[in-house]
Structure formats: structure tokens, C-alpha cells
Design a protein around this nucleic acid. Structure first.
Lengths: 101, 101
DNA sequence: GAGTTAGTTCGATAAAATACGAACAATAGA
DNA sequence: TCTATTGTTCGTATTTTATCGAACTAACTC
């Protein structure tokens, strides 16, 4: 099961992570991943075209927020909870607990 | 002592706050405000022109991260610690404790 | 091998953010 | 009132981001 390139835990950069999380669409994606666990790209992007979703997945992946594993034709995404917790303790909880608007 | 317009605590929007914090220059400003308390604009912007600093202050202010009071010709800025804590518990601590890079 | 499915990459466009000089406003002090 | 100080606002140039169709790739299925 192949894996796309991801930054290492020690390389996670706060401004970059915050920027990845500062987009409402991506924040929704992160919340759904937190609730429902591992999800395919298709499962998350209902109303948006594939290319737009792919862009957002890439932004989250490059920032180190999610990890993507390729299983056949399917790309499985999951939150890098432990890595984020090690690098920025409490961040994910704060973001997930925050009021939606 | 006049005060510039600021969003109310209940109006603070997470994506907007995260975006305000996602710029390295602004993150530095926030860290310095956390360490040194109330600061004037001039005290924070050494290497950047005034107009650039003013832009960053405005971004932080509009997001609700800082509050600006006008005292004579001086603008005093301070972190909205309590407001941020009420709206997004733990956020500020996470950001301030995070490794610099 | 042909077709299908899942998602990436490319290319173009539009919207937003950054940067900064110059002009401006408000206040303090001589 | 004249001048200096502090910071905002304006105008513009540059960069970054978002959006999305179209072409492409990889893997599975028949």
C-alpha cells in the first residue's frame, strides 16, 4: 500500500498548518475526518469537483495535517492526530472543539 | 482613550483567526505581545515600513486577536487573551507554546 | 485489451493577500 | 500656529490561493 509524500513530524510548521486549517472547506474536511476516521477523497467531496478537492487534500497533506495512503485506485486519508499532538499539543482538540461559526 | 472597531467575542470566526495567525510576521507580533504585554505599533515594527505593519495590525484586529486603543498619537495594542480563551479555549496557549520552526 | 473508477496534474482565470511608497489625519509640544 | 510624531489610508504592483474543466495515470474488472 503506497504512500504519498508527507512532511516528518519534526518538520511540521505552525504557520503552514494554521494556513491549511484556515480555509472553511478544509476545516470541514478535517472535522469529518476526525468524526468518521479514514475516508476516501470521493467520500468527502460531494459538491465540489475532483480537482478542487484534490487541491485541498494536497494542501492539508503538504502541511502535515493528513496522511494519504493509496490502496488500489482508492486514496485513503486520515488525520495525523498523534503527529500533530506531538508537535503542537492541544491544537487539534482546540480546532475540533471550536464553534462552527 | 478612543478604541478602534473590533469584533465581539461571540463573533470571532475560527478560519479568520487561524488565517490571521498563519503569517509568520503576525505570529511573531502575537508572541511579542504575549511576552511584553501592551505595545505600540512602532515598538513592534522595526524592519518593516509603517504601512506594512499597519496592514498586519489591522488583520489581527479584524480577526479579533488584538485590541487597539488610541492614546494621543500612540496606538496601544494588546492580545485579547480572555476573549480568545472564552471563544476558542486553549488556542492561544497552543500557538504560544509551539516550536518556532 | 477495452472500459471503468479514483484521483492527480495541467492550464487558465479570477479573487485575495502582501508589500510598500506617498499622501493624509490626529495629537502633542514648542 | 508651526513642527514633529504616530499611525492610517490610498494606489498600485506582485504574489499567492482558489476554482474548475480537460487531459492524464494507475489499478481493477470484464
Amino acid at each position: 500500500m503506497r504512500e504519498l509524500p508527507h512532511p516528518k513530524t519534526e518538520e511540521l510548521d505552525l504557520p503552514r498548518v494554521l494556513h491549511a486549517l484556515s480555509d472553511p472547506a478544509r476545516l470541514d474536511m478535517v472535522r469529518r475526518l476526525a468524526q468518521e476516521g479514514e475516508l476516501t477523497c470521493g467520500a468527502l467531496g460531494v459538491d465540489r469537483p475532483k480537482s478542487s478537492m484534490s487541491h485541498h487534500f494536497r494542501t492539508l497533506r503538504d502541511a502535515g495535517v493528513i496522511r494519504t495512503c493509496v490502496d488500489g485506485t482508492v486514496h485513503l486519508n486520515h488525520l495525523r492526530k498523534e503527529d500533530l499532538e506531538r508537535r503542537f499539543p492541544g491544537l487539534l482538540k482546540v480546532v475540533l472543539d471550536a464553534p462552527e461559526t
